[in-house]
């Protein structure tokens, strides 16, 4: 069975190669966007790598259409970046292929079908689905550990096709320098905070604990109080700290799916019927403006005592 993996970031190549290796397959790789910029690293995961120096969904869609038609690929895999969701959904429509997103495991049955486990109901549930090949599967980011790199394969350059959508301007987002995926302790802030200035409470708590500050989608995307690399949840980061302290967060499934791998979850919320208390290990029903300063004070005392 011929597999084509699409790498958007360099790290995708190793992760996708690992997934393919697990079902005893081998994949050619299409490197786009940042993976195309560092194609030599990508080439260490496959004998044949196509390089498309573009992140335009249309260009990726057309390149894939061409590769699938000529190369006879039966399975296309990638991770679910927004530009790839765009490109691959168009490809799925144009070639009439089933497409499964947010997968975390994959199996091939009799070389004819794929069996995938994926999140469902905003990640309240897990769904096992089966679709016939040829098919497209998009994984959640970092769904597996990367494979060890090997010899560099051959690189074939592809020319991007221009589409109807023209880019007029590109504005990079302001990003902090946090790496929530690596943090042991995360203090999460939600709309229970009334003003941006008040977030200093969360930062002070996080610093005291040697942790980082993360947030819900509205705090980053709507209010822009924090940079988007702190956004946790189904459309943001998935994190796995030892301790997650959620302050003024209601506990929506879209947010909580991002912290389901936390070892211990603490919720501080003034509404005793907030859904987060059912998804937390320890809950404190209190106004954050009263409770967090006291918690900080007590932690400081404790620290001073050693």
């Amino acid at each position: 069975m011929k597999v084509l993996a699409i790498a958007y970031e360099v790290k995708d190549a190793g992760e996708l190669a690992k997934a393919v290796k697990e079902f005893n397959g081998e994949a050619d790789i299409l490197a786009v966007s940042r993976a195309a910029e560092q194609v030599n690293e990508v080439a260490r995961y496959s004998k044949r790598v196509y390089r498309l120096a573009s992140k335009s969904p249309y260009a990726i869609y057309k390149a894939l259409e061409n590769l699938v038609e000529r190369g006879g690929y039966q399975l296309l895999i990638a991770e679910g970046y927004r530009n790839l969701r765009d490109a691959l959904s168009r490809l799925a429509g144009s070639l009439d292929l089933p497409m499964i997103t947010d997968a975390y495991t994959i199996r091939i049955l009799d070389g004819e079908k794929v069996l995938v486990e994926r999140g469902f109901l905003s990640e309240r549930a897990k769904m096992k689905v089966e679709v016939p090949l040829p098919a497209i599967v998009l994984f959640i980011p970092r769904f597996t550990e990367p494979l060890e790199p090997g010899e560099e394969g051959e690189v074939i350059e592809l020319a991007p096709t221009e589409g109807p959508e023209k880019v007029l301007d590109v504005k990079p987002k302001a990003m902090g320098d946090v790496n929530l995926e690596e943090a042991d302790i995360i203090v999460g802030v939600g709309r229970g905070f009334k003003a941006k200035e008040d977030l200093h409470l969360a930062f002070e708590l996080a610093e005291l604990l040697g942790g980082q500050v993360g947030c819900t989608r509205p705090i980053a995307a709507d209010l822009k109080w924090l940079s988007e690399d702190r956004w946790i949840g189904i459309s943001g980061k998935r994190v796995a700290p030892k301790l997650y302290i959620a302050i003024g967060i209601s506990g929506s499934p879209q947010h909580m799916s991002g912290v389901q791998n936390a070892k211990i979850i603490v919720a501080i919320n003034k509404d005793k019927s907030a859904p987060i208390f059912k998804q937390a290990d320890y809950g404190v029903v209190a106004d954050l403006y009263q409770f967090v300063p006291i918690l900080i004070q007590k932690l400081k005392e404790k620290k001073a005592k050693g």
Partner: peptide, 9 residues
């Protein structure tokens, strides 16, 4: 389902 694929198709 959160798949983001119907509009593109």
């Amino acid at each position: 389902e959160v798949t983001s694929q119907v509009p593109g198709r």
